[in-house]
Every structure is written in structure tokens, then in C-alpha cells.
């Protein structure tokens, strides 16, 4: 997908910056405080995944306007090892790293739309959308 704004995720400071930018945009779109918090939290999980498991990556932020609806779409992409078993990765409590294994499943629950595309050896792309 084209359009939107691309941001790098190369360090944990970048994860903080992604959180702040997602917050600012959700606020500007008129999201409620709870909805802002949900998408910022989901963004934080996915940005950290891209950093910790993907060796760094990018996020594309796109503001959506569909008739009377407005939303925010975030596409996280990395060129890391990818996910062999997506079902397993989405299950709560599954982790290969230092987290709690709530990142992917949690991000899915906090979003209205969720798509995960991954191939071993080719990286991972996770797209989430939250509507106002």
C-alpha cells in the first residue's frame, strides 16, 4: 500500500517515538481516550516485536477517511526471520523472547482489524486498523 508516513524502528527510543506519534494522530482524529490508549498500546507491542524479533523495521502510518468514519492504520514491517507458525505466535503466553507473549494476540484484541503476513526467512508484516 502506498501513501501514509514511514517511520524507522531501529532502537527502543524509536519505539517511544512511534508511541508518541500514534498518540498525536489518534488525538487529532478525535479518538476517545480509551481508543487512543488501545491503539498506542498495540503500536508499542508491534514496534517492539519488529525491533526485538525482526532486528528493526518500519511502520507506515495512514489516516483513513471512509465516508463519515475516520481511522488509523499502522503497518509494521521487518525483514527478520519471520514466523513459522502464525497460529502459535498469536496464542497468549507464547514467546521466544523476553516478553510475556502477549504482544501479537494483545495487539489483535486492541485493534478493529488485524492482518499478519509472514514467511520464514522473509520477514513479517502486521497491519492493524482502529476506527473512531
Amino acid at each position: 500500500m502506498s501513501g501514509g508516513d514511514l517511520r524507522e524502528i531501529r532502537s527502543s527510543d524509536d519505539v517511544v517515538r512511534v508511541r508518541q506519534e500514534v498518540r498525536a494522530r489518534a488525538q487529532a482524529l478525535g479518538f476517545s481516550l480509551v481508543d487512543q490508549t488501545k491503539i498506542v498500546t498495540a503500536a508499542s507491542e508491534l514496534a517492539r516485536n519488529a525491533l526485538d524479533y525482526g532486528g528493526g523495521g518500519t511502520v507506515r502510518l495512514t489516516e483513513l477517511r471512509n465516508g463519515g468514519r475516520s481511522g488509523l492504520r499502522l503497518e509494521f514491517e521487518d525483514q527478520g526471520p519471520g514466523i513459522a507458525d502464525v497460529e502459535q505466535a498469536l496464542r497468549d503466553g507464547f514467546t521466544t523472547g523476553r516478553g510475556l507473549g502477549l504482544g501479537l494476540g494483545g495487539a489483535r484484541r486492541l485493534s478493529n482489524e488485524f492482518e499478519l503476513v509472514s514467511q520464514p526467512g522473509r520477514g513479517t508484516r502486521v497491519t492493524i486498523t482502529r476506527w473512531k
Binding site: L33, V34, Q36, T37, K38, T41, E45, D92, L100, L102, G105, G106, R109, L110
Partner: peptide, 14 residues
């Protein structure tokens, strides 16, 4: 803890 954070945490599964 802020209310919005509490709601989000529970939905996150934490």
C-alpha cells in the same frame, strides 16, 4: 493507574 490504562491492560490480557 489511569482508567483508560486499566481498560487497555485487561483487554491486552495483562
Amino acid at each position: 493507574m489511569r482508567p483508560a490504562v486499566a481498560i487497555t491492560l485487561v483487554e491486552l490480557g495483562l
